[in-house]
Simulated scan of single mutants.
Amino acid sequence: MQGHCNFLAAFALLALASMWGSSAYDPSPLQDICVAINDPKNGIFVNGKFCKDPKFVTADDFFFSGLNTPRDTSNSPVGSVVSTVNVEQIPGLNTLGVSLVRIDYAPFGGLNPPHTHPRATEILVVVEGTLYVGFVTSNPDNRLVSKVLYPGDVFVFPIGLIHFQLNVGKTNAVAFAGLSSQNPGVITIANAVFGSNPPINPDVLTRAFQLDGNVVKYLQTRFGWKNN
């Protein structure tokens, strides 16, 4: 099974590289905000990382081990754990525009909740279990595009769109996903809206979601967790 998982993970990453590796355009931002300054002495280097002298590069700069190890989902409030392999884990990914994740889902109900990757398209392959997945298109249609996936099935989540995965099977589920950025970012919708720091004024959320103010205040006490 380990060899099978490694093959599928490699397939996802190679497919991603073939789709985006040949494109030539300005790189997407690798951070949420970048305020311009005139004096570089007062700045920090954020869009990527400084590079190691090529003479000192080793194989370990391009290596990561352990993505075959199952993650414990019992402590996750939504029943999923996302294990990232990006430029922080593999320094050699710097400037290459790709990264990888493993997602473990608890039986029947394990959820990777609605979220977006502001800097990456995602291509996901199911290794174990049965997942109901989908994404929502932008305004004004907000069309749901969804499908039930089985082992070996592949699904794409376009850059920036809200998407999710739900384990609808009775056993654990595992998926691997490649992303078209070394630092794709993630915004979990409910957590960002109801768990922001400092909190959004409840009046804003009451009007936006057409909810009673007490419901909004309750929801604001429920969020703030991370699943990756």
Rank of each mutant, 00 (worst) to 15 (best):
K41S: 15
N142Q: 09
G160M: 07
N228V: 09
P140K: 12
T188K: 07
G21I: 13
N112M: 06
N75I: 07
V215P: 00
G195M: 03
A190I: 00
T58Q: 12
V81A: 02
F157V: 05
F176S: 02
I123E: 02
K226E: 10
V35P: 01
P199V: 11
I162G: 07
D203V: 04
V156H: 01
D153W: 02
V133F: 02
S76A: 10
T171R: 13
V98L: 15
L144F: 11
E122R: 05
G48N: 08
D212A: 12
S83H: 06
Y150H: 15
N86Y: 10
C34F: 03
P54G: 08
P70Y: 05
L67A: 09
D104T: 02
T171C: 06
T116M: 07
F155Q: 03
P70C: 09
P199K: 15
F56Q: 13
D26I: 10
L161G: 04
F209A: 00
I200Y: 02
V81W: 01
P29G: 07
N47T: 06
C51S: 12
Y150Q: 13
A190R: 00
I37M: 10
D212K: 01
E88R: 11
P91T: 10
D104P: 03
P91A: 15
A177C: 10
H163N: 14
G43A: 15
L93W: 15
T84I: 13
V136R: 02
F50Q: 11
F157C: 07
K52G: 05
D26Y: 13
H4D: 11
L30D: 08
T221F: 01
G185T: 03
K55F: 05
H4C: 04
S80Q: 13
A190Y: 00
G97H: 07
I123K: 03
E88N: 15
D72A: 08
L96H: 08
N228Q: 12
F155C: 03
W20A: 12
S99Y: 06
C5A: 09
S80A: 15
V78S: 12
P29L: 13
D60P: 04
T206W: 00
F45I: 09
V78Y: 11
R222L: 15
I200V: 15
P202M: 05
R102Q: 13
N38P: 01
Q89K: 15
P91W: 07
P114H: 02
L219Q: 00
F135D: 02
F176Y: 15
H115S: 08
L100S: 07
V82D: 01
T130Y: 01
V127D: 04
D39M: 02
W225P: 10
F11K: 14
A15G: 15
M19E: 15
D53W: 04
Q165P: 03
E88K: 14
D60L: 12
F194N: 00
P29C: 08
H4K: 08
M1Q: 04
W20E: 14
C34G: 04
N42Q: 12
V193W: 00
G43C: 12
P91C: 12
L93V: 14
S23L: 14
V82Q: 03
T137V: 09
